[in-house]
Design a protein around this nucleic acid. Structure first.
Lengths: 153, 153
DNA sequence: CTAAGTGCAAATCCTTTGCAGTAAT
DNA sequence: ATTACTGCAAAGGATTTGCACTTAG
């Protein structure tokens, strides 16, 4: 099944590559609908699935019931804000991170691993700020904890 | 809202704790339906959500569109077979794995991390065996690669 | 011309929810 | 008696799919 050019597919991939928001299908659709009024959501889904198959896009996972995608396909972890659903890239894994591989002896039976997905969950800066305002304790919370101080798993 | 006893909830949690299969709601429902014929799927979903809130169960993630759960709530990575959807526990993370934490400097803005989820994707032993049979190249593939030899990410 | 791609709407599938009845405290 | 919990069925929301039409090659 040879591939033919389509302006929709082209636009969808460009949209994916133009953002760091790790969008879902609906977001892409909303973004493109004004410039391609005939576009349908089904077409967005169909083309994303093509991209996934050919590896030009990867799935970050499902956030609030919606699958989110990333056109940066080199393996790297993501962070998800549990409050607003924002997804952010984490700096690509360093060599230190290889120690995160499962210990060979611990692998069940003949399981062969293809790839790993790591996602960190927490609260993003903006949502944390909102929490502080809503809590109406500006003076106490104004003192920022040093970055990473709670980065304990 | 104080909690009342219910035999359904009790049975659902026991079922979750009695298996290593990381089941989804439907699996639990099917397992319990014979002994509790009145059970409804909605009740399974409602109670799982209670368990998630109180932390007596965690979500492993979504496999083939279905959310899968684990009653072993200490943080540990999982493996998912992309072929059959089987989910397995990995030995709990060792101290070496702390290096998997994102580097503090790399965290975007004021993001605060609560927890991490790591999932390894691959092919389980049984599915690999099936592939070998279907490929009808038993002699060549009978020579097993040493465990972990393909554990490269 | 012919095979791939699209738009649309219907269909799926998992999950949630409203409501009336049931059971625990 | 009060309030939580259940069963049922309907509703929801994301994703897929069948089909007739359009478009690239």
């Amino acid at each position: 099944m040879e591939r033919k050019y389509s302006k929709q597919r082209d636009a969808i991939l460009k949209t994916l590559r133009s953002t760091h928001s790790h969008p879902g299908a609906q977001w892409i659709y909303d973004k493109l609908k004004p410039s391609i009024p005939s576009l349908s959501l089904g077409t967005v889904y169909r083309n994303i699935n093509l991209f996934l198959e050919e590896g030009s896009v990867v799935s970050v996972g499902i956030v609030d019931g919606e699958e989110r995608f990333d056109s940066r396909v080199n393996p790297h972890p993501h962070m998800v804000c549990c409050r607003c659903g924002k997804v952010a890239d984490l700096p690509h894994q360093t060599d230190r991170d290889r120690s995160c591989e499962p210990e060979a002896g611990g692998l069940p039976d003949g399981f062969v691993i293809d790839y790993r997905k790591t996602v960190y969950y927490g609260i993003c800066g903006e949502c944390a700020a909102v929490s502080r305002i809503e809590a109406r304790t500006p003076l106490e919370t104004a003192v920022q904890e040093p970055a990473g101080s709670r980065t304990v798993l």
